[in-house]
């Protein structure tokens, strides 16, 4: 079972992000479960959502305590919230930021965990025209983790968002996916 935790701020689409991942996994014939951290938080407050993906029925109902991946939608949360709590030994982290790990103060942390920075907000601005990093971050996650395919993610986005919104979000996801693939390729090359 692969467990994901998404951190962001109310209004950024954290919950939708987890839901989209679950739909994408479902479209690939897998079992998945997505749920929010159930707060009554208003816009801008720190929020968390969870997603589990497995090849068997998921019965576990606890919050994701030891994630295999953490997605950070808002880098300003980095040193305010205990974001990496419980991260599994091989757990990966994807941060929405145009800055590098040094600038974010994550250099030391990245020695023990694969951490990637993805300028998801910039990609969103380019493709959606609004600072909504969700789809781009998920596209990046698809490339980075290999847990879901970009095609099923695009399909999931298309299910949730109709018309131009759906189109733009799919484009953002695809662009982020390509961006991360490129970086990974460069890193291994």
């Amino acid at each position: 079972m692969f467990q994901i935790r998404i951190h962001g701020r109310g209004g950024q689409g954290v919950v939708t992000g987890a839901e989209l991942l679950s739909i994408a996994a479902f479209l690939e014939g897998r079992h998945s479960q997505a749920f929010p951290s159930f707060g009554s938080e208003r816009m801008g407050a720190p929020v968390v959502a969870f997603c589990r993906i497995a090849d068997h029925e998921i019965r576990l109902r606890e919050p994701v305590m030891s994630p295999d991946a953490i997605l950070v939608q808002d880098p300003t949360l980095l040193h305010q919230v205990d974001l990496f709590r419980g991260l599994s030994a091989s757990g990966i982290v994807l941060v929405n930021s145009g800055k590098n790990l040094n600038e974010l103060g994550l250099a030391e942390f990245s020695e023990n965990h694969p951490v990637y920075c993805l300028p998801a907000t910039e990609i969103a601005l380019e493709h959606i025209g609004r600072p909504l990093p969700n789809s781009a971050l998920l596209g990046g996650f698809a490339a980075f983790s290999g847990q879901i395919g970009i095609d099923s993610l695009e399909k999931a986005i298309g299910e949730k968002f109709k018309g131009k919104t759906g189109q733009d979000n799919r484009a953002a996801a695809r662009a982020a996916f390509d961006h991360v693939k490129e970086i990974m390729h460069a890193a291994t090359a």
Partner: peptide, 12 residues
């Protein structure tokens, strides 16, 4: 139905 845990959970 358990509030949030089921009502707000996506599953198949």
């Amino acid at each position: 139905v358990d509030g949030f845990i089921l009502t707000h959970a996506y599953e198949q």
